[in-house]
Design a binder for these strands. Structure first.
Length: 285
DNA sequence: GTTGAGCGTT
């Protein structure tokens, strides 16, 4: 994972992470490093990428050693045109250094060399109102694989990355392509859209009355006085084997002696096996 | 070859 042997962040005890947004999908950490390093001591640059595809998500995290430098970088690089797009630099909200950030504003912010406020960038109202933002991030091209790189190991970027174990056309490993696309955000979004496609047409999802379960019907289905006694109940009050046809049908619970292997054993009584009638005594609101 | 809100890795 481009960590060069290390596992996880290098040293996050005294670093300040900056969130760099609006970067191009091809911008790598090596491209951002020299840009941020000019304003301070960059400890590490990390670009989160997709778990499935492994492509850049369009933002990066630049970790500074000092807050004042990070602040300066935010003030200087915020709005800077990188790779043809203006990036947005701001202090990261979540992360290892979230403790030092107080509601989006740095706490240990060292007083500027001058009384100059950091509000130098008259950021226009970009995100005024986007109706939805979930229709994206589903597929991305396998382009950048550079994730997290340290400026000390930049020379490693010349590795042969041509070999891409891209399954070779094999089926997906464990992750789908359109299913799990979340990044397991813990406290990022209070509520998330329910990833439930419109495939609820299956009888069993949530129809107004999902009653008759030809197998899970409780033995208390005797509340249909002439309603639907068309069960295979053996005449005489046989044991709970209500499906046992006195002929020789296999012990399949839904074995209808009629022929249709469906759950509807009685034609005309498709969805009312004898319980959810408007007058069923079992109706518990 | 595409896209463009957002908050991170063993």
């Amino acid at each position: 994972m481009s960590h060069f042997g290390r596992s996880g962040p290098p040293d996050i005890k005294d670093t300040y992470s900056l969130l760099v947004l609006n970067i191009t999908f091809r911008t790598t950490a090596d491209d951002l490093f020299p840009l941020f390093d000019k304003y301070g001591e960059v400890v590490d640059v990390f670009i989160p990428r997709d778990r499935r595809t492994g492509d850049s998500r369009g933002f990066a995290f630049v970790r500074y050693k000092h807050a004042d430098e990070a602040q300066k970088a935010v003030d200087k690089l915020d709005g800077r045109n990188v790779d043809g797009r203006d990036i947005r630099v701001q202090f990261a909200k979540y992360g290892p250094n979230a403790e030092r950030v107080h509601k989006g504003r740095i706490v240990e912010e060292k007083p500027r060399t001058r009384g100059r406020s950091r509000s130098r960038s008259p950021r226009p109202s970009y995100r005024d109102g986007y109706p939805d933002r979930n229709h994206k991030r589903q597929r991305r091209s396998s382009r950048e694989r550079s994730g997290h790189r340290r400026y000390h190991d930049r020379h490693h970027r010349s590795r042969s990355r041509s070999v891409t174990p891209d399954h070779h056309g094999r089926s997906r490993g464990k992750y789908d392509d359109e299913r799990s696309r979340s990044c397991s955000y813990s406290s990022a979004s209070p509520v998330r859209h329910s990833p439930s496609p419109k495939r609820n047409s299956s009888p069993g999802g949530t129809p107004p009355k999902r009653n008759s379960s030809p197998g899970g019907t409780p033995p208390k289905r005797n509340s249909s006085p002439g309603g639907t006694p068309k069960r295979n109940s053996s005449p005489g009050g046989t044991p709970p084997k209500r499906n046992s046809s006195p002929g020789g049908t296999p012990p399949k619970r839904n074995s209808s002696p009629g022929g249709t292997p469906k759950r509807n054993s009685s034609p005309g009584d498709e969805k009312n096996h004898g319980e959810p009638s408007p007058r069923s005594p079992s109706a518990s609101p």
